[in-house]
Structures are given as C-alpha cells and as structure tokens.
C-alpha cells in the first residue's frame, strides 16, 4: 500500500522539474524545432510546386512551339498555294490577253488586206477600163479609118440593138 501513496517531496520536485522542463523545452527547443520543421516542409512543398509549375510551363512552351511551327508551316503552304494560284492566274490571263491581241492584230491585218485588195481591184478595174477604152479607141480609130468598116459597124450595132 505504501507504493500507492505519493510522496510529498517527490511530488513537489516533480511539479517543479517537469514544469521547468516544459517551459524551457517549449521556449528553447520545441518552438524552434517545430518552426524549422515547418519551414523545411514549406520549402520542400514550394520546391515541388515550383518543379510542377516549371514542368507545366515547359509542356505549355513545347506545345506553343509546336503550334507556332504548325502555324508557320500552314502559312508557308498558304503562301505557296496563293503564289501558285497567282502565277497560274497571271499566266492564264496573259495567255488569254495574248490570244485576244493576236486575234485583234490578225483581224486588223485582215481588214487592212481586204481594203488594200479592194483598193487594188478598184485601181486595176480603173486601169483596165482606161486601158480598154484606149484600146477600144485605138481599135475604133483604126477600124473607122475607112468608110466601109464604119458602116459595117453601125450595121452590126443596129442589129445587135434590135436583138436586144
């Protein structure tokens, strides 16, 4: 039973020593220790967060690059395509224009030739008329130099005229 009765002396020393121990350890050991533990945990957490963030940023950057590259490629393709189109269009237009021009020139030439020809024909006609008149004059002059032939002619002419 003696074992179960607390000693006043030990009780007193226990309260004093444990109390002092509690206050000293709290102030000089537990507070700094838990504080440093917390700081370290926060450091580790922030480092991990940072790594995660960097990884995400890297991934984003990479995808951005990919996107940029794809965009550039698409733009290049579009430029080439449009250039091709422009070239084709210009060439086509030029061909059409050239054809039209050629046709127009041919037409002009043809017209010029035509008018030249008609003019020439007219000229030839005129000259042929003049020539024939001269020939006829000369022939007539020669034919009508004697009386007999004159009368014959008139006779023929009259006959002809009657026939008409």
């Amino acid at each position: 039973m003696d074992l179960l009765i607390p000693d006043i002396g030990l009780l007193f020393w226990m309260v004093v020593v444990f109390g002092l121990l509690f206050f000293i350890l709290t102030k000089f050991a537990w507070k700094p220790i838990t504080q440093s533990l917390k700081e370290r945990e926060a450091d580790i957490q922030s480092a991990l967060d940072m790594a995660e963030r960097t990884r995400a940023e890297m991934a984003k950057l990479q995808s951005d690059n990919q996107k940029l590259l794809a965009e550039a490629r698409a733009e290049r393709d579009a430029i080439i395509r449009s250039a091709n189109e422009t070239r084709d269009r210009i060439v086509g237009e030029a061909q059409v224009k050239a054809g039209e021009e050629a046709k127009r020139i041919m037409e002009q030439t043809r017209e010029a030739l035509q008018s030249e020809r008609t003019a020439m024909i007219a000229q030839v006609k005129r000259e042929v008329v003049g020539l024939s008149l001269e020939i006829a004059e000369k022939v007539l002059r020669k034919e009508l130099s004697d009386k007999k032939s004159q009368e014959e002619l008139v006779k023929n002419m009259v006959a002809e005229a009657r026939l008409n």
Binding site: D7, L10, F12, W13, V17, L20
Partner: peptide, 17 residues
C-alpha cells in the same frame, strides 16, 4: 516532518531533465 529530500527518484528526475 516534510521530506523534500533529493531522493534517488528526485536525483533520477533531475538527471533525466
């Protein structure tokens, strides 16, 4: 008699502290 002696237990208590 109030006994506040540094007994074996108190000495051990101080040692542990």
């Amino acid at each position: 008699v109030y006994d506040f002696s540094i007994t074996k237990n108190v000495a051990s208590l101080l040692l542990s502290a």
